[in-house]
Design a protein around this nucleic acid. Structure first.
Length: 358
DNA sequence: TCTGGGGTCCTAGGACCC
DNA sequence: TCTGGGGTCCTAGGACCC
């Protein structure tokens, strides 16, 4: 019998900040970009549960979170504490949590800094799997003073949806027999791979919950959603055969930067591009890669219109100068009058290398 | 109202080859 | 004068995930 677990740390970044800063506890807290008095440019990474009561959530523009905080303050409620993320700190704790998981499971797939899938099949039953997960949660709490929510299911998809079902500090067990009924009443958006666009598209066809998706045959789903639709036919029935992957090689390395202010200051843009190239090259080496073949430059204009240009070298190279040279060459057309006749200001540039090799 | 930064995967068209 | 079919590589854009 296949039994898969999915562990998801509760409001991870915010929980770590509360741990390290006891003075933040009991206050609404947002980890994310600098709100800069309502003029900040980034988004919310994580909001703690008190901040969520103000309607703040992950990926929300930081300016909106700022306004929500101001509104609360005027009502006489505590304003939000805004802090910048400290990824190094979160990675360090993440590593220790993954170590706990690996002690109890023969196969762990990290799915980002704050979540992981893990094999539970060898426990032999859903009861035993649940007992083991309670133990894992207790160890994490004892060692790190942090809570996690865990889902147990017959495959990765069901386990992941289950871990999100009860939060924080939840444990949700979905047996193979219960999987289909568990999924049926959930909004389609809960299925990993269905994002805002697909959700909107489906809503226009009158499809809101997983049960609604069962009306369609595999060819109909394929016609609507492409190759992915075929897999979806199985998923809405609680079936998925995706395997756990211990670790995989990155396929690309890139960096991008949103400017504090939109600009067409060429000296500034070139300098930022140069820095991004240095960063990409350094990280490529640091991650153990020797070479790259493709360089991609991305430009986002002030109106969020986003374009990319790529060039693939005839041979792999290690050269840092080539990266800078090709990135400059790819950027040039965007600064040209013909490509940008209305002289739109630039909001972001990015550099990425692909076809990387050891 | 404004929308980060790190990625992956898919699609579609064109070039090119057999 | 009217032009296949399959495969691979490349580019550009878009959806999605954490």
């Amino acid at each position: 019998m296949r039994i898969i677990g999915h562990l998801d740390m509760d409001a991870f970044f915010a929980a770590v900040e509360e741990l390290d800063h006891p003075e933040f506890r009991g206050l609404p807290l947002v980890v994310g970009a600098d709100p800069a008095g309502g003029r900040g440019r980034g988004v919310v990474s994580t909001a703690n549960y008190l901040a969520r009561r103000y309607g703040i959530h992950s990926a929300m523009p930081i300016t909106r979170a700022w306004r929500a905080s101001e509104t609360a303050r005027r009502r006489g409620e505590p304003p939000v504490v805004f802090v910048r993320p400290r990824f190094r700190r979160y990675s360090e704790i993440s590593r220790r949590i993954m170590t706990i998981l690996r002690r109890h499971s023969p196969l762990v797939e990290e799915g980002g800094i704050d979540e992981a899938y893990f094999e539970l099949s060898s426990t032999g039953s859903y009861e035993e799997a649940a007992a083991l997960c309670r133990k894992i949660k207790a160890e994490i709490k004892a060692q790190e003073q942090l809570t996690a929510s865990v889902g147990i299911g017959p495959n990765k998809m069901v386990a992941k949806i289950a871990s999100d079902f009860k939060k924080p500090d939840g444990l949700t067990v979905v047996t193979p027999e219960a999987a289909e009924d568990f999924l049926a009443p959930l909004p389609v958006r809960k299925i990993p791979g269905i994002g805002p666009k697909t959700e909107g598209f489906l809503a226009r066809q009158g499809v809101k919950i997983v049960a609604d998706l069962k009306r369609f045959s595999p060819p109909e789903l394929e016609k609507m959603l492409g190759k992915w639709g075929l897999a979806l036919y199985e998923k809405v029935r609680g079936r998925s055969s995706a395997v756990l992957v211990e670790e995989w090689e990155p396929k690309s390395v890139g960096e991008q930067e949103t400017f504090g202010q939109d600009t067409l200051d060429l000296a500034f843009i070139f300098e930022r591009l140069w820095d991004l190239c240095q960063g990409v090259w350094r990280r490529l080496q640091a991650e153990g890669f020797q070479t790259y073949r493709t360089v991609v430059v991305t430009v986002r204009f002030a109106d969020f219109d986003t374009h990319s240009r790529a060039y693939t070298l005839p041979y792999p190279t290690q050269s840092r100068r080539t990266l800078v040279f090709e990135a400059m060459r790819l950027l040039m057309p965007f600064l040209d009058r013909r490509e940008n006749p209305r002289r739109k200001l630039i909001r972001l540039i990015g550099v990425r290398v692909e076809k990387i090799g050891k």
